[in-house]
Amino acid sequence: MTADRGRILYVVAGAVVAAGATWWFLAAPPEQGDGDLAQWRESVEQQLPDDGDQEDAGTLTLRPEAEHDVETPVGTTGKYLVSVICRGGPGTTVRVSLSPAGNDSGLGMSCSDYRPPDRFEVGLADMMRLHVVVGEEGPVVFRYSLRRVDG
């Protein structure tokens, strides 16, 4: 009788472990493949390509809820054009601000829509600072460009 009870406990424990493992793998969120990231990178680099007139440009792959600061020294005080674009899966967003602190709420961007780059002019004295925050969904590919505006 004790041997039968032991076998039943082992069978039930094994079934619970198998059910838990199955649930674990089925409940995992879908991963973005490297193909998606490569396609998004290609898309942002085509829409915001490198050229010889830029002060700086860069492409970043950022995970969900990531925060990243970009700092670029500028040689001359003046007016600059900042261009930003992002790509990601459904529901992905990015918020870009000029400072990680203060009252700058930033520019909210949807990365899941096919949109042209956002552009805005800023006056800079010595450094361009961008603070990038990714929303709850991700990953995303984010690209920025900095160009001096003549005049």
Rank of each mutant, 00 (worst) to 15 (best):
Thr72Ala: 13
Tyr114Arg: 07
Asp56Val: 10
Leu124Gly: 10
Phe25Val: 01
Arg41Ile: 04
Gly151Pro: 01
Met109Ser: 03
Glu71Asp: 13
Val94Ser: 03
Glu121Arg: 14
Asp126Met: 12
Gly6His: 12
Ser112Trp: 02
Ser105His: 09
Asn103Asp: 10
Val16His: 11
Arg5Cys: 10
Val94Gln: 00
Val94Phe: 01
Val44Ile: 09
Pro30Thr: 11
Pro29Gly: 14
Val82Phe: 02
Tyr144Lys: 07
Pro29Asn: 11
Ser145Asp: 02
Glu42Asp: 15
Pro90Gln: 14
Trp24Glu: 00
Gly151Asn: 08
Arg115Ser: 12
Ala15Phe: 09
Gly88Asn: 08
Asp4Pro: 05
Leu81Lys: 15
Val132Ile: 15
Leu107Met: 08
Met127Phe: 13
Gly14Ile: 03
Gly106Cys: 05
Thr22Lys: 08
Cys111Tyr: 01
Leu124Asn: 06
Gly151Ser: 12
Phe120Ala: 08
Arg147Thr: 09
Thr76Lys: 12
Val140Asn: 00
Ala18Tyr: 00
Ser105Phe: 04
Leu98Asp: 04
Asp104Trp: 12
Val94Glu: 00
Arg7Pro: 01
Ser112Leu: 01
Leu98Ser: 08
Pro139Trp: 05
Leu107Gln: 04
Arg87Tyr: 04
Ser145His: 04
Arg63His: 08
Arg63Cys: 05
Val74Pro: 03
Tyr144Glu: 05
Val16Ala: 15
Arg143Pro: 02
Pro117Ala: 05
Gly89Cys: 07
Arg5Glu: 10
Gly91Tyr: 03
Val84Met: 10
Ala27Gly: 07
Gly33Ile: 05
Ser145Phe: 03
Gly108Thr: 03
Trp40His: 02
Trp24Cys: 00
Gly58Thr: 09
Leu130Ile: 05
Thr93Met: 02
Val11Asp: 10
Val96Pro: 00
Lys79Tyr: 06
Ser97Glu: 02
Leu37Gln: 09
Thr72Arg: 14
Glu42Phe: 10
Val70His: 04
Leu62Trp: 02
Val141Asn: 02
Val70Lys: 01
Asp118Cys: 08
Gly123Phe: 12
Pro30Asn: 12
Phe120Tyr: 11
Asp113Ser: 07
Pro116Ile: 09
Arg115Ala: 13
Val141Ile: 09
Val12Asp: 05
Asp34Phe: 10
Gly135Lys: 00
Ser145Tyr: 01
Arg87Ile: 02
Arg5Phe: 09
Leu146Cys: 05
Val11Cys: 15
Arg87Phe: 03
Val17Thr: 07
Ser43Glu: 11
Pro116Glu: 13
Arg5Asn: 11
Asn103Cys: 04
Leu9Arg: 14
Asp50Lys: 13
Ala21Glu: 01
Ser112Glu: 02
Ala13Gly: 14
Pro29Arg: 13
Gln47Tyr: 00
His68Lys: 11
Pro64Tyr: 06
Ile8Val: 10
Val70Thr: 05
Glu31Trp: 08
Asp126Lys: 14
Leu124Ser: 07
Gly123Asp: 14
Glu67Asp: 11
